[in-house]
Amino acid sequence: MRAYFVKRVLQGVVAIVGALLIVFVAQRLSGDPVALMLPMDAGEAEFAAMREALGLDKPLPAQFGIFMVNAVQGDFGDSYQWQAPAMTLLLERLPATLELALAGLVFALLLAVPLGVVSSVHRGGLVDRAAKVFAMLGQAVPGFWIGLLLILFVAVELQWLPAFGRGGLSNLVLPAIALGWYPVAAMTRTLRSSMLDILDSDYVRMERAIGLPERWIVWRYALRNAMVPLVTMIGVYFANMLGGAFVIEVVFAWPGIGRAVVDAVFARDFPVVQAGVVLAALVFVAVNLIVDLSYGLIDPRIRHAKA
């Protein structure tokens, strides 16, 4: 398990270095930043001075070295808009995005786990068929549209919950539903099919043959086995929610990372965009690492496996 863990960490480091390389290259390809920074009437001497000040006169490998040294320290330069370190700006907004993504995930699981289990136990039954339709709707309809409908009906018409902004739990509900709706479908289907396999296994037959209550067999003994493929999906979707929540963040005026990066793109605020890309890569790697570790918690065969 330890060797396995070390291997996964190293793979994560490679992924992050890759992201940094892409950010660096994209920056060099996107035109001359000095031209953007200097006034229109600046002369050749001022250009040269600015290039030297920014280190842009050095050869590319040297520039990459400097970039990497800074990046490792979390320094992606100052935001053009806010005159503050780009990474600091984003890290301030990270809790809001984490909160939203976690709430979305909890919502998705609260629906998907019971639906998946009941669908597998009563295969072809009412819940199974209803869940299928419900899940299809979830995947066919974009999250922002669900968000807009929720705002329209729940917030504006019924006035039950606030329409936008971050604050208490009541602010969290609508964006969490809009964000968590999409993965419910895939999670329900995945859990259903792995539950069907397991409910048909020899050990479930054995558990029935010694008279364990069906409730225990389904919700305890079978569900834990069926969780492994679901955990993989949780990892993928949670990372997507963290990195891809910006649409929902814009719809609900949620002060998260996604919205900050979108704003930065429109403002051509390059350091913030770069920091955002690298942060997203970091989050992906971290989430995948947590997922890998949790396999071991669920399945002792993975925990004891020699890598």
Partner: peptide, 24 residues
Amino acid sequence: ADEVRGRQIAMISQDPMTSLNPVF
């Protein structure tokens, strides 16, 4: 389930490799 299986009648199944729940 409550009164017969395991209590009055129990079965030792064919394949020991697959008859035990791997995660408990």
